[in-house]
Amino acid sequence: MDANTHVTDPREHINEEPRNDLFDLMNGFFGMLTFMAVIFFGMVIVKFIAG
Rank of each mutant, 00 (worst) to 15 (best):
F40Y: 13
D9R: 06
N20M: 05
A3E: 14
F35V: 01
N27Q: 11
N15L: 02
A3K: 14
L33W: 08
D24K: 10
H13K: 07
A50G: 03
F29T: 03
L33T: 11
K47G: 14
F35W: 09
E12P: 00
T5Y: 08
E17K: 00
D9T: 04
V38C: 15
D9V: 07
F23W: 06
G28R: 09
V46K: 01
N15A: 02
L25M: 14
A3F: 14
H6I: 12
I39N: 05
G42I: 09
D9H: 06
N15K: 02
I14F: 03
T5K: 13
A50Y: 04
G42D: 09
L33A: 13
D2Q: 01
N20S: 08
H6L: 11
T34P: 02
I49E: 04
L25R: 12
T5S: 13
A3I: 13
T5E: 11
M1L: 05
H6Y: 12
F48I: 15
H6R: 15
T8H: 09
M36K: 02
T34F: 11
E16Q: 01
R19F: 04
F35C: 08
T34D: 11
G51E: 05
F40C: 12
A50C: 02
G51C: 06
E17V: 03
A50N: 05
L22Y: 05
L22M: 08
M26G: 04
P18F: 08
M43L: 11
N4M: 04
H13N: 06
G51T: 05
G31S: 05
E17I: 01
M36P: 00
M26L: 13
F23V: 09
T8F: 07
V7P: 00
I45T: 03
H13R: 10
F41Y: 15
E12C: 01
P10N: 05
F35H: 04
M36I: 11
P10C: 09
F29Y: 08
M32W: 15
E16G: 00
F35N: 06
F48W: 14
L33D: 13
I45V: 12
D21V: 14
D21Y: 10
D9I: 10
P18G: 02
A50E: 05
F48H: 15
M1T: 00
T5L: 15
P18W: 08
M32S: 10
V46Q: 01
N27S: 10
V38S: 07
L25Q: 11
M36F: 12
I39V: 12
L25D: 13
V38T: 09
F30S: 09
T8S: 15
M36V: 13
M43P: 00
V44D: 07
E12W: 04
F40T: 11
A3S: 14
L22C: 05
I14R: 14
N20C: 13
V46C: 06
G28P: 00
R19D: 02
F29V: 01
G28N: 11
I49T: 12
E16S: 01
V44S: 12
G31N: 10
E12L: 12
F29N: 03
P10E: 10
I49L: 12
A37W: 10
H6M: 14
D2L: 00
N27Y: 10
V7T: 01
I14S: 11
P10D: 07
H6Q: 15
M26S: 03
E17G: 00
M32G: 06
E12R: 06
T8E: 13
D24H: 07
I45C: 08
